[in-house]
């Protein structure tokens, strides 16, 4: 395999695509964003001088080691947390508190357990004053889009994790937000379901006018989904690099072994790995001895 391939090298088609994206309007702009937590022990800087732009219908992933503040970042953008300095703009308007323009999908599903699937998806529309009839039509459309038309009357506790997350996605999208913020949405799912959900999300993204900012700690997921990957480093959370993913679209799971994919992954690992090392300093080093005492019969071999 050509692991020495340059991760920045883009084919003409990919380059043309990026040029097109950059010409689109900027949906989200973050300028010099800082976040400082005040605790009893003093101040902790979670985010320091974050700068990036997201264009319309772009898919941006945020990745970084734990403690890099990626969750803080997305919560600030959702309006669920305040920021200490800098600017965060949606359509050039400063972000101030949560609103329907910035839909959010959480790792923990956060469906309303007392509402059926249909009512869950309808929630946002009802809160914003849509009549039952209008909302109903919209909702049915969306439930079909996420493939849950058979489960409209089910309660969340009757659904699997993947289905719950599809409801959550539909619930956010039915509001027609300008940007969809996703905080490790597939983190709690098993590998198979996660792969299915990733393809499903790409399918949705392809077909509707939505910009996505997606947080993950899974490198493969980030490369598979994203146009660009925002790599953060920890303590304090700073932008390390913004990578334009050179893997061509449309994406499919076979690309996981393509040279572009592997080159990008190698680069991400190089960026995140040293950061992980410093982090493990908090934990005592688990040392695995090279030679172990044998507890089983000599002839009882497993390998």
């Amino acid at each position: 395999m050509e692991n020495d391939m340059d991760y920045l090298k883009q084919s003409d088609a990919v380059k043309a695509r990026f040029d097109k994206i950059k010409q689109r309007e900027v949906i989200l702009e973050v300028k010099g964003l800082d976040k400082v937590y005040k605790t009893a022990k003093g101040h902790t800087t979670a985010l320091k001088n974050i700068n990036f732009k997201v264009h319309r219908r772009e898919f941006v992933c945020v990745i970084g080691p734990s403690g890099c503040g990626k969750s803080s970042l997305i919560r600030i953008l959702a309006g669920l947390e305040s920021y200490s300095g800098g600017e965060a703009l949606l359509d050039n308007e400063p972000i101030d508190g949560p609103c329907r323009q910035r839909g959010m999908v959480f790792q923990g599903y956060t469906l309303f357990p007392w509402l059926t699937v249909r009512k869950n998806v309808m929630f946002g529309l009802e809160m914003n004053g849509a009549t039952n009839e209008e909302a109903g039509r919209e909702v049915d459309l969306w439930l079909e889009l996420v493939g849950l038309e058979k489960f409209t009357q089910a309660y969340p506790h009757e659904l699997s994790g993947g289905m719950k997350q599809r409801v959550a996605i539909a619930r956010a999208l039915v509001n027609q937000p300008r940007i969809l913020l996703m905080d490790e949405p597939f983190g709690a799912l098993d590998a198979q379901t996660r792969a299915k959900m990733q393809s499903h999300l790409l399918e949705i993204w392809r077909n509707i006018d939505i910009t996505i900012l997606f947080i993950t700690h899974d490198l493969d997921e980030a490369i598979y989904l994203a146009d660009r990957i925002l790599v953060l480093k920890a303590h304090p959370g700073e932008v390390q690099e913004i990578i334009e993913v050179s893997v061509p679209r449309p994406r499919n799971p076979e690309q996981f072994n393509s040279p572009e994919f592997l080159a990008t992954k190698a680069r991400l690992e190089a960026l995140i790995h040293p950061a992980e090392k410093t982090e493990h300093k908090d934990e005592p080093d688990v040392h695995i001895p090279s030679r172990m005492i044998r507890f089983v019969n000599v002839e009882d071999n497993v390998e």
């Binding site: 309303f112 007392w114 946002g124 914003n128």
Partner: peptide
Amino acid sequence: DYSLLEAAMTLGTSKIKLLRYVVIPG
């Protein structure tokens, strides 16, 4: 669960409506 309130807010629920539509049924 506070995240239910957060989810409702990101769906455009006003502070006044949170009590009636999320806290009480929840």
